[in-house]
Write a protein that binds this DNA or RNA. Structure first.
Lengths: 215, 215
DNA sequence: CCTACCGATCGGTAGG
DNA sequence: CCTACCGATCGGTAGG
């Protein structure tokens, strides 16, 4: 089932070539932005001609959309898939958070989380690229909220917990760690985020909503 | 003391012109990025010649640095100065947080917080622009931590509160509200951030560090 | 502050 | 997949 076993050699080469190009494109985009990703620049980074890259994708926007899709695949098997091996409930929720922090901290992409970078770049620029980034962001947030909901159902978090609100708060901490670690070239923000998430989960374990937390 | 009263008409015109240009540059930069801010594009946006803009700043990097400085001034009198009129302690801390959320939500810049956008764009690109953005970010974070320290000194927050950690957590909520409001074109994230900050402050009011919050 | 220009690079296309 | 080209725009400079 390997790509190399396909009999149409030309098509197989095209696929391999495209995948190799995408791996570079995704890295370049987290550093220089999806807009800073130029066809000519990508071509020289993978030792191809500009026309070769242009023909592979058709247009710059198609290249950008393909890059978003490639990043989503990497995110899927780096963060989502490993977390799904943990038992549903608080263990899976914690595994998901830890997988995200590892994904950011280990620099799977040189510019940190691909979607954090892409979101900041396209959040004020309507169009297909923004829509693609937003769809992936929403998918992640929904998945995180679902993990929280299952933790509540399992009795690991208080029933009064607002899953969407807690998902907002947790991902705020994760994004802040990613941002600041990159900006100040330090690992300390990851420790801060882990500490903050622990406190959020502890609060949710005991009483759920923050506002019901008063004496 | 008005700029218009200066006797050197040529210099006065230059100053006025420069300020008018900066007001546009700062808006363009939050939408298209500091890198997407081109000399020719800025020129046509303010109905000047490209050579005129080029001569006003010298180089693109100088234009970018001037834009960061102009944004810092706006941030200063939009967020910092108003909060300083509130009494030191928890009232000033709350005023500071509310001023920041208003600043982001009211779209003082069309692309939301200037520094959130600039940070995302330059955090992986070393150089003078990144350094200028980082310096402003650090100044804000230090100011926020100092407001927290004063709230602790005033007895409004528990003595065991870790000011730097709480500053991390609060600004994580603010940045997340800014990010998501722009990406999903919704005001809901601001309500989530306000709720989250209230919970953080309530926790700090009672026990300080999250880890000391256990039963 | 303007016009007019420089070389380089942009996205994209033609032809093979 | 390549070379060779298109018009447009980039940052920057010269001369006034």
């Amino acid at each position: 089932m390997d790509v190399m076993t396909v009999t149409d050699g030309r098509r197989a080469r095209g696929d391999v070539s495209r995948q190799a190009v995408m791996a570079v494109a995704v890295d370049l985009a987290t550093v220089n932005g999806l807009d800073g990703l130029s066809i000519g620049g990508l071509a020289s980074a993978v030792s191809m001609s500009k026309g070769g890259i242009a023909g592979l994708f058709g247009s710059k926007e198609e290249l950008q959309l393909a890059t978003v899709a490639a990043a989503a695949e990497i995110f899927q098997h780096t963060v989502i898939a490993p977390a799904l091996t943990a038992p549903a409930g608080l263990p899976r929720l914690r595994a998901l958070i830890e997988a995200w922090l590892d994904y950011s901290e280990s620099r799977v992409f040189p510019g940190g989380c691909f979607f954090a970078a892409a979101t900041a770049e396209y959040r004020s620029r309507p169009g297909p690229v923004r829509d693609a980034v937003a769809a992936n962001l929403l998918r992640w947030r929904t998945f995180l909220a679902e993990a929280i909901t299952r933790a509540i159902a399992a009795g690991d978090l208080a029933e009064s917990t607002d899953a969407t609100q807690l998902a907002f708060e947790i991902s705020a901490m994760l994004d802040a760690a990613n941002d600041q670690s990159l900006m100040f070239d330090s690992a300390a923000p990851y420790a801060r985020a882990r500490s903050a998430v622990d406190a959020l989960l502890e609060r949710a374990r005991r009483t759920g909503l923050a506002h019901r937390n008063e004496r």
